[in-house]
Amino acid sequence: MIWKIILFLLISFVSIAGIAFPIVKNPQAWYEFPNIPGLEENAKIIFFHVPTAWLTLIAFLMSTVFSFKYLKNKNMDDDAKAYAAAQLGMVFCILATVTGAVWAKFAWGAFWSWDPRQTSIFALLLIYGALFALRSSIESEEKRATLSSVYSMIAFVTVPFFIFIMPRIMKGLHPGSADDTGAGPIVNFQMNSSMLFIFVLSLIGFTILYYWMWQVSYKSVIYRDKLNKNLIRG
């Protein structure tokens, strides 16, 4: 119970700090953020957009890990866990795409410009979509679990390629990418310590939130299956 209260306070604090703390030229007090040329007030997106993208990856990783576990042990609970993780990953993937696009409209002038990061998140969106299309097309439970596990493992293998290919093929606009000239890699050195601190807090807070949502979600899937089986038997 106590960690739920901590989570509530953590994300409340992050939203207060992320939205209301002023951005000034020369930060003096602990609650002032540095002004990053090219981003200005837009830089505050980092407290809300980056965690969603981070959770997308975490969810994808977890989904793959539990898929692997399912293939090893053939335990339906692992499939429910993988499925719940993928569902949450899809939600956060959409959130990351949309928030990023809205931000890009005002930072780069267009909603979508096939920046490497945008393309990779688009690929993730396609993978999640394909996974759910596959799941919905199969009736038999075990077959569905096996095939979707296999597919998510194949899809997971392709992800590292995007990291290597994208920067070669497309020019980077995203803050933090290698040839970024306009906005500067804010992640590396332009954040001051208080901004970095709140950023890390926000990552931690959102990860706990994800973990909680994932627990609720996979439990509901497991119990639904259990109740269905009881209905058939009884």
């Binding site: 690929a123 396609l126 394909a130 299309a133 596959l134 097309s137 095939l147 392709t158 390629f161 290919i165």
Partner: peptide, 23 residues
């Protein structure tokens, strides 16, 4: 191979293949 074991055959194939083939 995945598609042949799944129910829907025609439309699902490009949907599943595209993300894998994208790199």
């Amino acid at each position: 191979a995945i598609i042949s074991k799944a129910g829907a055959k025609g439309t699902l194939y490009p949907v599943l293949s595209f993300p894998i083939l994208l790199p």
